[in-house]
Amino acid sequence: MFKPSWDLERNQLVERHTLTVLVDNEPGVLARVVGLFSARGFNIESLTVSETEHDRHRSRITIVTTATPKVLAQIKLQLERLVPVHRVHDLTAEGNALERELALIKVSGKGENRVETLRLAEAFRANVVDASIESFVFEITGRPNKVEQFITLMQPLGLVEVVRTGLTAISRGKEGM
C-alpha cells in the first residue's frame, strides 16, 4: 500500500497536546486558526475561545490536538506565523498545567434511577442546575476524563444529551503567558 512521505515518522507515536494561543481578537482570527488546521491536515480534538483582555482586544484560544512530535512542532510554528498571533505555548510540553472542562448533562428518569443519579452527581460534585419531575440538568467541571466518566455512568440511568465546552487550560505558578 502507498505510504506517504510522512511515513518517515512511522517510529513516532502520536501524542495529545494542549496548546494555548494568545491572539488579537480581530475579525476572522478564529477562522484563520481553524483554517490553518484543516488546510494542513492537522487534528483538532477540542477548541475553546473567548476574549480575555477586553481593553486590549485579546483572546485566548485553547486547542487540543493529537500529532507526532514532529508535526506538533510544525503546528506550533505555523500558528506563530499567523500575523495576529502573539504567542503559542504548548502546555503539555511545559508540563503540569491545570486543565478543566465544563459540561451540561441532561438525564431523565423516575424512581430508583433518579435517586441513583443524584447520588452519583454528589460524588462527582456535579450541580443540579435544572430539575423537573422527570429530569435533571447537571453542571460538572473538571478534567476531561472525570467528565467522561460521569457521562458514562449516566448512560444507563437515562442520559438524554450532553454539551461540553471543550478543554480550557492555564499553567500553574506565578508566571503568566
Binding site: 512521505s5 514532529k70 510554528l77 505555523q78 506563530e80 506565523r81
Partner: peptide
Amino acid sequence: IDPSSINKNIV
C-alpha cells in the same frame, strides 16, 4: 527566515 520551514520535510 521562516521558522516553519525548519524540519518541515527534512530534519
